[in-house]
Nucleic acid binder design. Structure first.
Length: 227
DNA sequence: GCGACAG
DNA sequence: ATCTTGTCGC
């Protein structure tokens, strides 16, 4: 995969915020995305070596709806931007984009480990990289970042709104009965209902959806064995 | 000023 | 996220 847009990630936090506001204008919501046409889904994640200050970005391609791993790519790169809530894409984006360049198969959609538009300025890592790659994307986080989260039933598949300024910016989703929920928001080129629906369809036997789970496992493998 | 704060 | 041991629960 190749990004259609490119920009420097070598920015100050203030410049990064300004860029987010510009990139946000490229977001497309609720396009004619069809879950029935999905053949391949991607999961992207990053692991970090504190000792070496290195990031390991990985992309895993899974078949859909069978969820079998079909392709993997990884890239090691120096962590040049600090972790700042709201600016995660500037830390993890570079190494993930390099990993996407190595991927040969074209996924129909990408799941990112982090938020989409459920973000202080409406442009989390899933939205940001979705725009640069011109690809449908969904943000799936394990913790909330902004907005008010409502209670949800204990049953698998239960959802509740994440509201900010009176608007629904994402959904909390229970992926397994009585297990902590995950936080789903639109990244790019898809609507919230379909994003939640597709996320639920990528749940295997665990709390975390298979695309992200496999990416997480793989990123830890490359960090601990191939470094 | 204070508290919150994806990975 | 990483570092890091044992421990509680299905």
């Amino acid at each position: 995969m190749k990004p259609i847009y490119a920009h420097s990630f070598n920015l100050t936090p203030k410049e990064a915020v300004e860029l987010q506001l510009k990139l946000k204008k490229n977001l497309i919501f609720d396009s004619d995305f069809n879950i029935e046409d999905v053949k391949l889904v991607a999961g992207a994640d990053v692991s970090y070596s504190k000792k070496e200050n290195m990031l390991y970005g990985v992309v895993v391609i899974l078949t859909f709806p069978d969820l079998e791993v079909a392709e993997k790519a990884w890239v090691k790169g120096e962590a040049e931007f600090p972790y700042i809530p709201g600016l995660l894409a500037f830390r993890e984006g570079p190494v993930l984009l390099e990993a996407f360049k190595k991927i040969e198969r074209e996924p129909d959609i990408i799941f990112f480990d982090g938020h989409g538009i459920s973000h202080p300025r409406g442009l989390g890592i899933a939205s940001h990289l979705g725009v640069l790659l011109n690809k449908s994307s969904i943000g799936v986080a394990k913790k909330n970042l902004v907005g008010e989260v409502f209670e949800l039933a204990k049953t698998k598949g239960a959802t509740a709104s994440i509201l900010k300024d009176g608007k629904e910016i994402g959904k909390v989703l229970r992926t397994r009965e009585k297990v902590k929920p995950i936080y789903v928001s639109v990244g790019h080129k898809i609507g919230l209902e379909k994003a939640v629906d597709l996320t639920l369809k990528t749940i295997g036997k665990y709390r975390i959806l298979e695309p992200i789970r496999q990416a997480h496992i793989f990123s830890n493998e490359v960090r601990t064995s191939k470094s």
